[in-house]
């Protein structure tokens, strides 16, 4: 059992957890900036970027994928701004138009191109392929100290680990400017903070996290990781630091519990086949949000304790 767990479940759970954390961290600030939809936009928009990067390079290596998706995200942000300003269209509508159109374009492009040789198709783009990121060379927990086995870890693990580490370091480094510009943009400008650059940097970090998470949970379900853990965390506390820790905890819980429920849950209730891990991870994060909305200690903030003096 434990050998099988290390072989089949350990790496997908690790990858899922790291992807969830990498998305949840920028998600906290996106939600507080009322820009949660940007996470949605990004997760859709990265698809055409990845497909174009594949068509140009013929591989699905990490760097071209990240560059392609990053470029697509930048194009999307510029398009949204252009539509907003030129057409005087409501920002929400401008976003909706741009990300849906780009995602649809990505799907068409993907269908028309020959990606049979690589692990890139519409289903993978939508659902991810967490279950396939297994560690075949592992024979048990002892493999964690075996260099030969470690050399054959799925490459996606290293990729998401690097991205998650970068997101964590950037969040720590730019904590104060992020908090300040998110809370009070006008004041932040008067003390000389580069407000626009910080906002743009946040979106870029979210885009990189979305691309890296693409392998694990697929394009659509990334949105759940951006929104559900931070939104649930907001209902647990009135302090930003504590909120971010809760969001990391909820993201990890969703990934671990989601994977286990998807893999073993159907067997427990007598069914034969496992269900989509990515789908279950997103579902668990949604259930956590629902529970937080029903029972979270800070769920009824509006109008509470006004004028407590």
């Amino acid at each position: 059992m434990s050998a099988e767990f290390v072989q089949l479940s350990l790496t997908p759970i690790l990858i899922g957890t790291l992807a969830a954390i990498a998305c949840a961290l920028p998600g906290n600030f996106l939600i507080l900036r009322k820009q949660a939809l940007i996470g949605d936009a990004i997760s859709h928009v990265v698809l055409p970027g990845i497909v174009v990067a594949f068509l140009l390079t013929g591989t699905i290596a990490a760097v071209p994928m990240l560059i392609g998706a990053g470029a697509a995200a930048v194009v999307a942000v510029l398009l949204i701004e252009a539509i907003k300003r030129l057409g005087r269209i409501d920002p929400g509508a401008a976003m909706g138009v741009v990300f849906t159109a780009l995602f649809a374009g990505g799907v068409l492009l993907l269908e028309q191109s020959d990606t049979s040789g690589v692990h890139l198709d519409v289903e993978h783009a939508l659902m991810g392929s967490l279950e396939s990121l297994i560690w075949l060379d592992a024979t048990g927990w002892s493999s964690l100290t075996d260099p030969t086995a470690l050399a054959h870890l799925p490459p996606e693990l290293a990729r998401i680990a690097v991205v998650a580490a970068a997101v964590i370091v950037l969040t720590w480094l730019f904590w104060r400017p992020l908090e300040l510009t998110t809370f009070d943009e006008g004041f932040a400008r008067t003390i000389g903070l580069p407000v626009t650059a910080i906002g743009f940097g946040l979106v870029v970090v979210a885009a990189v996290a979305a691309v890296a998470a693409f392998d694990a949970v697929g394009s659509i379900i990334v949105i759940a990781m951006f929104i559900c853990p931070p939104a649930a965390a907001r209902l647990m506390t009135d302090r930003l630091t504590v909120q971010v820790w809760w969001s990391v905890a909820f993201a990890s819980l969703s990934a671990i519990l989601g994977y286990i429920l998807a893999g073993y849950g159907p067997l427990w209730i007598g069914l034969n086949d496992a269900v989509s891990a990515a789908g279950m991870v997103a579902t668990v994060s949604g259930v956590i949000l629902m529970l937080a909305a029903l029972f979270g200690p800070r769920r009824s903030r509006v109008g509470e304790g006004k004028g407590g003096a």
Partner: peptide, 10 residues
């Protein structure tokens, strides 16, 4: 009124 007073801070 220019900021969101629901922001999680003290």
């Amino acid at each position: 009124a220019s900021v969101d007073w629901d922001f999680p801070t003290r």
